[in-house]
């Protein structure tokens, strides 16, 4: 065992003296005792990740309590105030972000739409994650025909243009929120299925899994105890990225008119409805568009941070001081 500090290795490979393990100040990486707390502290070290997390929390809160605060502002039509420009309080605080062609408050509509958008995106991701992961882990662990059949099914689903599939299904059946969630979930299942299968297949040949087999542990017990805890962080990171995709997909569907139907409102629908007014009332499409973009970026940044933070072998990268990475051979004259 050489000890060499390369990019991929960690300081953990340096041997630890038993006597010196008593004193563990901020210590070696994160001790199990500090589990959750140190994850939080790690988050605070990364400014971008912290900001992203805050944004997502803010949007989540908006979706939760916003609509009740807005009351019926989102639906109240007032043609006197139609198509008013934003960034002025002249018409009252509720029209700070402008109004649409029916005089409804943009601010209120954005808030209410956030709930709709999230209530489609989050369940879709959750269902796909749950079904895809369990299926993938099972297929990957057992290998053989189970793996092959599962992968072929995944291939079939993935080779359908997902938007086309969604259009067809939602046209045939009514485009209710539940149907949208189901079809979005179905088209995303293969992502989790493949990832979970690949990780599970690699894990099941690892030595500690072999060790468990030597005790006579049943496959399901091994999957629950060894495979899922290792695979879960990757899948959660994937889910965060998928969240963005699903949100955009729902926006596209609404844009095409087969997603959320009026009088319900989602960000995608708002973008669609503002299409014909782009020249005259740009805020009708731009604000909901910005909302989508901001949420997506925040989720992406957080996902990138999460990927490193949930891997015990990589976590040290987040704790490094930000210094120069290029070595210089120091000039001899500088020596005392």
């Amino acid at each position: 065992m050489k000890s060499s500090l390369t990019e991929g290795s960690t300081p953990e490979q340096l041997p630890v003296a038993h006597e010196q393990q008593n004193e563990r100040k901020d210590g070696k990486q994160d001790g199990k005792q500090d589990g959750k707390l140190s994850l939080f502290r790690l988050l605070l070290r990364d400014r971008f990740a912290t900001v992203s997390a805050l944004i997502l929390v803010f949007i989540g809160l908006t979706a939760l309590v916003g609509p009740s605060l807005m009351g019926d502002l989102a639906t109240k039509q007032n043609l006197l105030f139609a198509n008013k420009a934003p960034f002025t309080l002249a018409y009252g605080w509720e029209y700070f972000l402008g109004s649409d062609s029916l005089g409804r408050s943009m601010l209120a509509r954005l808030v209410v739409a956030s709930r709709t958008t999230l209530s489609v995106a989050l369940p879709a991701v959750a269902v796909a994650l749950f079904v895809g992961s369990l299926w993938g882990v099972w297929a990957g662990y057992h290998r053989g025909w189970r793996e092959n059949v599962s992968m072929r099914i995944a291939d079939v689903i993935m080779s359908f243009p997902s938007l086309l599939l969604a259009v067809v299904v939602l046209y045939v059946f009514s485009p209710s929120a539940a149907n949208i969630v189901l079809i979005l979930a179905l088209t995303r299942i293969p992502i989790y299925l493949r990832t979970a299968r690949a990780e599970s297949a690699e894990l099941q040949s690892r030595t500690f899994v072999d060790a468990a087999r030597t005790f006579g542990a049943k496959p399901n017990a091994i999957i629950v105890r060894h495979v899922i805890p290792v695979v879960l962080p990757t899948l959660l990171t994937l889910a965060t990225l998928e969240f963005c995709y699903v949100m955009l997909a729902e926006s596209s569907l609404s844009f095409l008119g087969i997603g959320i139907q009026p009088p319900d409102v989602s960000w995608g629908l708002m973008v669609s409805q503002g299409r014909q007014y782009l020249q005259s009332a740009w805020w009708l499409s731009i604000f909901p568009g910005v909302a989508i973009v901001v949420t997506t970026i925040a989720a992406n940044v957080l996902a990138a941070w999460l990927r490193i933070a949930t891997d015990p072998a990589q976590r040290w990268r987040l704790a490094l001081p930000r210094k120069r990475l290029i070595a210089r051979i120091p000039a001899k004259e500088a020596k005392p």
Binding site: F208, V230, P312
Partner: peptide, 21 residues
Amino acid sequence: FASLNARMNAGDIIAEPWATH
């Protein structure tokens, strides 16, 4: 390094066989 699951603690690793027996 490979024969122990890095996400379990030592006590759980040693006690694992008893979960099956």
